[in-house]
Design a protein around this nucleic acid. Structure first.
Lengths: 146, 146
DNA sequence: TAGTCGTTTAGAATGATTCAAAATCTCAAT
DNA sequence: ATTGAGATTTTGAATCATTCTAAACGACTA
């Protein structure tokens, strides 16, 4: 059902973990695989249930741990909307998020780097940015459920 | 300690409530007053404790209710960062937020409307935006605690 | 084979927020 | 002024995502 990681993906994972001095474990591989398999910004719980199919007995706490690890080593981004459960996104290119209020789905929106540059310019001189998050909220008209 | 609302502020409040068919109550006036008195993006709990000084006996649930009401009628904006407690902001002009990681403080950043316009342009044609949130995360260099 | 250290696990704990039900208040109409 | 209907407030319990704790496990090294 869920494809294994390909060579390149496995390498990213191993490299990122190694770089921050952490180990490769079956749990981490599966959680990462689940994230790549369906890039729909799943919640922890969704990741957990998808991963259970491959590894019954996996615990929810481990999924929390794995995802936290990935965020820590820059493999994955967190996506928050209001106070809803945190969602996870393996897209590392700079992008914004659009949350469709009618479906609850989150879509990635490509973010031209000029806009990012302009944004950093509106900050006072002594403000140093580490992260910029841009999120849209609204509805899609046609809703061809893309 | 906390100034009363001035004529204009009181009007905004009454008008906004009236427009959405809701009543004016002492609790709502005080909560709104607290928000205007110190525009430092307080959490519900902070608003609650500040308001208690003027109205002992006020309940936390009421503060939740009032703030929800204000958000509902567009008087106040919510500000979320990661999974921290929601903060509240009575600044209605379009602006972004900068969260200083070293102090935890949130600063308003004026947002030129050209940028907002550009942002809406990066969306696919059938995406209709209702809200755009932009938040920076980082540190201030000088930290003259402005 | 034993020791070390990071990881996983289950379940308890936390903390922000929401809910439920009863008491109270506001305001328009009398 | 008084009343009544409906909105609001209050208290305390409930919920839910997330974090914590402590024990078990595993991989690797001495």
């Amino acid at each position: 059902m869920i494809q294994n990681l390909n060579k390149h993906e496995r390498e990213s994972l191993h490299e990122a973990l190694a770089k921050s001095g952490q180990k490769i474990t079956p749990q981490r591989e599966i959680v990462y695989t689940v994230l790549l398999a369906q890039r729909d910004h799943p919640t922890v719980d969704e990741v957990y249930h998808r991963a259970l199919e491959t590894m019954p007995g996996l615990s929810l706490a481990t999924v929390y741990n794995c995802l936290e690890t990935f965020v820590g080593c820059g493999l994955v981004r967190q996506v928050n909307h209001e106070r809803e459960s945190t969602r996870y996104c393996p897209n590392l290119a700079p992008h914004a998020h659009f949350r469709d209020e009618s479906t609850g789905r989150v879509h990635d929106i490509e973010l031209p780097k000029e806009i990012l540059e302009q944004l950093t310019k509106i900050l006072p001189a002594d403000f140093e940015t580490e992260t910029i998050e841009i999120s849209f909220q609204g509805r899609t008209k046609s809703s061809t459920q893309n």
